[in-house]
Amino acid sequence: MSLEEQVMLFIMIVFPLYLLSFTLYIIRAIKGPTIPDTVLAIDALSFDIAAFLALLSILYRSPILISCAVVLALWVYALDIYVSKYFEARDMGD
C-alpha cells in the first residue's frame, strides 16, 4: 500500500467520527436553553469545522480550498464579540 492510499484510508476512517461529533454539537446548538449556550456551541463547532475543512482539502486533492478555513476561523470570533457586547451594554444601561 502506497503512502497516498494509506493517507486516504486514514482520512476515510476519521471522517464518520467527525460527522458524529458535528451532529452532537449541532444538537446542543439548536436546543441550548440560553443564548450563551448556543453561541458557545457554534464557536466550538466552527473551529472544529475549520480543522475539518483542511482535512477535506487533502481528501479532494485541491489545496486551494484551504483559504476558506482561515476566513471561517476569523469571522466566527466576531459573532462572539457582537453577542457579548450586546449583553454587556444592556447590563451597563448603555
Binding site: 440560553t34 443564548i35 450563551p36 464557536d43 462572539d80 453577542v83 457586547k85 449583553f87 454587556e88 447590563d91
Partner: peptide, 10 residues
C-alpha cells in the same frame, strides 16, 4: 462570552 454572561446574570 463568560464575562458577559456573568455580568448580565443570564
Amino acid at each position: 462570552l463568560a464575562r458577559a454572561t456573568h455580568r448580565a446574570r443570564l
